[in-house]
């Protein structure tokens, strides 16, 4: 197991916190959006863009780059925040989210936003698209890897499992999926809406290497991803146990913040809790 010094981990955690602040600010200014699932994914995104991915924000079309597909497209604010932090476009632009003429659409659009690898928003498409990229990598004998972030609600979607079968069938060991297991979907707890458990056994049965982690722990995110990189002949899924709305006390585990912007007062509290209102 690689050892990461405390300073490096602290730096990633600080980036994740900045992503969370951006998300709250963007959604507050837009007046709509999905804070809960953006906050639950912030740590994974920080780890991806500031440690895991081989990428170059100055060359979004670099052919050998690793690809990241945000299958849970409603977490677009978190994706835009990390892309801006990484330098794909100016941080100032974040405040244009959901506004007319903006490059930052309510859900990711690969035609408009530098760094967005696939247009998403309709749930359950991302893994299959990631598989296509992985097949292309194998055909071209390229070493780039594909990372896909799915929401746990997307485990309801039949296509997710079609894609899971395809990835295993074609031995796509260059694919790593993170399941943002925040256990809430729009209408309620996942287990009340459509039971997913035993989720890990399902993926195993589909031929995947399965790792379960705390999705808010940087070391665990990085270690699991490193482990995935070493797995040959099969794809890996990292079931990341997370808390919806993580980082803002009144949003944590709060169903109604799946797709609702904070009020002015809520915004101020959130920014304070996340360490200041000047991201």
């Amino acid at each position: 197991m690689e050892v990461y010094d405390g300073e490096f981990i602290t730096e990633l955690e600080a980036i994740a916190k900045r992503i969370r602040r951006h998300c709250i600010k963007m959604i507050y200014e837009a007046g709509s959006g999905h804070p809960g699932g953006s906050l639950s994914a912030a740590d994974i995104l920080a780890a991806l863009y500031f440690h895991i991915l081989r990428h170059d924000p100055k060359r979004p079309d670099w052919p050998d780059r690793d690809r990241f597909v945000m299958s849970k497209g409603h977490a677009a604010p978190a994706l835009y925040a990390v892309l801006a932090e990484a330098g794909y476009f100016p941080l100032d632009e974040l405040s244009s989210l959901r506004k007319l003429g903006s490059r930052l659409q309510g859900h990711p659009c690969m035609q408009k936003t530098p760094g967005v690898e696939m247009s998403t928003g309709s749930l359950g498409h991302g893994l299959a698209a990631g598989n296509g990229m992985a097949l292309a990598a194998k055909l071209d004998r390229k070493l780039y890897r594909i990372y896909v972030l799915c929401g746990d609600g997307e485990m309801d979607v039949g296509e997710t499992w079609e894609a899971a079968m395809l990835a295993a069938h074609y031995k796509l060991d260059n694919v790593t999926v993170y399941v943002d297991r925040n256990k809430l979907q729009l209408d309620g707890p996942t287990e009340n809406i459509m039971s997913l458990e035993p989720l890990s056994d399902k993926w195993k049965a589909f031929g995947w290497h399965v790792i379960e982690i705390n999705g808010h722990n940087m070391r665990e995110i990085i270690h699991a991803t490193n482990e995935a990189r070493g797995v040959k002949g099969k794809p890996t899924v990292i079931i990341a146990h997370t808390i919806k709305g993580k980082g803002v006390s009144y949003m944590e585990g709060a169903l109604h913040f799946h797709g609702k912007a904070p009020s002015k007062q809520e915004y101020e509290i959130a920014m304070k809790e996340l360490g200041g209102d000047k991201p």
Binding site: A129, N131, G132, A136, E159, E162, A163, M165
Partner: peptide
């Protein structure tokens, strides 16, 4: 396989990769 939805998205990923 008999998975047309999956096929279309897989095609999209391949196309996005050139």
């Amino acid at each position: 396989g008999i998975a047309e939805q999956n096929m279309m998205d897989t095609a999209a990923g391949l196309a996005a990769s050139g």
